[in-house]
Amino acid sequence: MTVYESDLPGVGKKHEVDLGDGSRLVIVTHNTGKREVFRRASADSDSEKLFELSDKLARQVGTLLEGAYFQPVQTETIETLLGDNTLIEWVEVGGDSALAGKTLGESDLRQATGASVIAIERGDELVTSPGGDAMVEAGDTLVVIGPRAACREFTALVKGT
């Protein structure tokens, strides 16, 4: 992928992304933070504006495009907000956790907390939509979805605090 960057004095910056089929995505980042996204069908044609986003919205949409939901991140503090109160969290299972060595069904954390495990990351391996018989081991990272309070409770249980 080739990205062309150019300065727009007094306006901001422009990035052009080659889409491979001769067309380009043009992103104008204003000094105010506003992003305007255009598509140029060919080198000769004029850019067509697709949409514009505020700085904040652009960052949120950027996270979505980046696919961050499906990339387990190793730190405990990372969380992704879906709605006003729904979180996706990454929780690491410590060696002394009560969960280690049990299946999800045995721990039955969904009943206890209201948060569901949507994926288990073990080293390079990813188990998506794990069933009740999925085994949790020390060192695993659990990807959890649920209301904010449920996620908090879940994290506390896993860590044994």
Partner: peptide, 21 residues
């Protein structure tokens, strides 16, 4: 006007803004 018309995304914006500088 460049921003209003969307020319800002096209190559002509560079010589225009450059000449203004």
């Amino acid at each position: 006007t460049l921003i209003d018309l969307g020319w800002i995304a096209d190559p002509e914006s560079e010589p225009i803004l450059g000449t203004l500088v």
